[in-house]
Every structure is written in structure tokens, then in C-alpha cells.
Amino acid sequence: MALRKKIDKVLGNILIVIMGVMVINVLWQVFTRFIIGTPSSFTDELARYLMIWLGILGAAYVSGRNMHVAIDVLPLRSSNKTQKKLKLIVYILIIAFAFFAMIIGGLRLVYITYTLDQYSPALQMPLAVVYFAIPLSGALIIYYKISDILNIK
């Protein structure tokens, strides 16, 4: 559990920084356009890419805290034993999705954009960096869900 707490903490701090930078970045956009008169050419793009990171990494964070919105119609009506089994199935399916779509699919996306030299239009930042959030988040989700499986009581 100590490791899990540590990961929570680091992940939380990253999200705080992303959110803070996002606000400052958009304020800077208004400031450069309206006060200075020479609009910044990168703030829009930076904001959108930070947003992808916030959303995708945040998905891992809320997944670790089991904050996702679920519709528990069936599980509530079934016996304790079936509930445990259903929980196990749900966790295994999430792990499968995180592995195949987010890690395999995500890494292939990172690989494609990296080997094909894809850069963002304004910041000229490698798009692989933007998409790397996906496999990273996938790995964290798998960690959290395995830890959840070990803790099913």
C-alpha cells in the first residue's frame, strides 16, 4: 500500500502542475493578444495538449480512487459471492482494455508518430510526447487494478 500511496501522491502533484500551467497559459494568451498586441502563436496548442495529458493521466488517477461513474444495477441485487466474481471480471476487462488498447495501441501510436518525425504545427514539439500519456496511463491503470484485485474482500 505504501507504493500505491506514493504513486497517488506523485500523480496528484503532476495533475496540480498541469492544471496550474493551463490557467497561466490561457491568461498569457489573452494578455499577449489584448495588452501587448502581438498574439502568442503557441498558447492555444499548448493548452490543448495539456488538456490531453490532464484527461488521460487523470483517468489513471480517478481509476486509482475508483471515482468513475458506474451504473450498478445488477451487482447491488446479487449475492456477496457473485458481486465479488463480477468485480473480478470488471477489473480483468479493464486490465485487458488498458493493455491492448492503451499500452499496445498507445505505444504503436507513439512509435508511428516518433519514427515518422511528427511535430506539432505551432510548438514543433514531437507528437509522440503528447500521445505518450496514453500508454503511461494504461500502465498505471493496470497497476491500480491488479492491486484492487488483490484487495477484493
Binding site: L15, G58, A59, Y61, V62, M67, H68
Partner: peptide, 11 residues
Amino acid sequence: SSATTAVVMLL
């Protein structure tokens, strides 16, 4: 706010 946002963003 990040966590609230992330729930929405994943959806």
C-alpha cells in the same frame, strides 16, 4: 478540480 475534470474527460 483536476479529478472532477478527468472523470468527465475520460467519458
